[in-house]
Amino acid sequence: MLRLGTRRSALATTQSSWVADQLRALGHEVELVEVSTEGDRDQTTPLAQLGGTGVFVSALRAALVDGRVDLAVHSLKDLPTTPDPDTVVAAIPVREDPRDALVARDGLTLGELPARSRVGTGSPRRRAQLEALGLGLVVTGLRGNVDTRMRQVTEGHLDAVVLAAAGLRRLGRLDAVSELLDPIQMLPAPGQGALAVEVRADDAHTASLVAVLDDHDTRACTTAERALLAELEAGCSAPVGALAEVVEGVDGPELSLRAVVTSHDGTADLRRSLVGDPATPADLGRRLAHLLLEDGAAQLMSDSPTTDHSPTTDHPATERAL
């Protein structure tokens, strides 16, 4: 019997159940074990203040190391980029839609929202990119599970919220989406839409059982995105977006990587892209990170987040053609 550790939220349970079903289809018995995390218990404090990317991860990793569970399922974007010596990501299954989704009143798209519309998000990356669009939106902080966030719109407290399309699809809630945001407008978080199945580093048996769920293209894309994030020394509190895709080049498959680093208030951004070999995705991520750093990304990320979240209309152009 494989004991699969999962957070207790509806989305986490749905994601973990999907992994469990894949393993059951291969003939394995799987039991879900709920693990409470600080991020689940505290639904009001901003994630960056709770501990950033690791807030949903540490309790699951502790359960793994203690032997209470044999494997754990994470949203890959929540997983810190620093390797953990006690655990290993044995599989990154095929990725869901990595894009962000807008859930707005009256089915409005982002461009149709009137100036001063209130848009909720708990992500500094989303906030910064929304501000950078110069649409005159009032972007406000938001915590809670998917249903809690969406109720802010249906009850009239907010005009719209931005959520991950993958989570809404897994929960069967895509009918609520007003618009799937094009990555040209808003690049997703590195690893968004992908799951990570983690096991103990010394448990080769479970790792071998789980490894069959690994998707080669998804691992290559997310490895490039997370290598970029690691090289930038950025976490979930940094306004960094990245998306890699395997595309067909002249000489065969290529790995295309796009990234953006935005000031916290959205008044300036850097957008860059590179193409590389799918066989060396981490190298591609590091090279693009170096390009961004050469062009001033560190300064953008080091600027303190603004406390005045009024709409921004003046956005200096800092992008250069490559």
Rank of each mutant, 00 (worst) to 15 (best):
S263N: 10
Q22R: 11
Q129S: 09
S304T: 05
P114G: 09
L2E: 00
A268C: 13
L2N: 01
P98G: 08
R8F: 15
R41P: 07
R116H: 11
L168P: 09
T313W: 09
C221E: 06
H264K: 05
L110H: 00
G193I: 08
E319I: 07
H28K: 06
T218I: 14
E233W: 01
D86K: 07
Q43K: 06
P278C: 06
W18E: 10
P278G: 06
N145W: 00
H309L: 15
A20Y: 13
V35Q: 07
L158M: 11
A166G: 05
L135S: 03
A59S: 11
A282H: 01
V89C: 12
V153T: 00
V33M: 10
S304W: 02
V153I: 05
R61P: 03
T37A: 14
L47I: 12
A160G: 03
E96P: 03
S263V: 09
G39I: 09
R173K: 14
G141W: 06
S16D: 01
L71D: 00
Q152E: 12
A63L: 11
V199S: 08
R99K: 04
P83W: 08
A207T: 02
H264W: 13
T313F: 15
T206Q: 15
D283H: 10
D175M: 03
G141C: 11
D70E: 12
V119D: 02
P98Y: 02
R272G: 05
G172W: 06
G67W: 01
L293K: 07
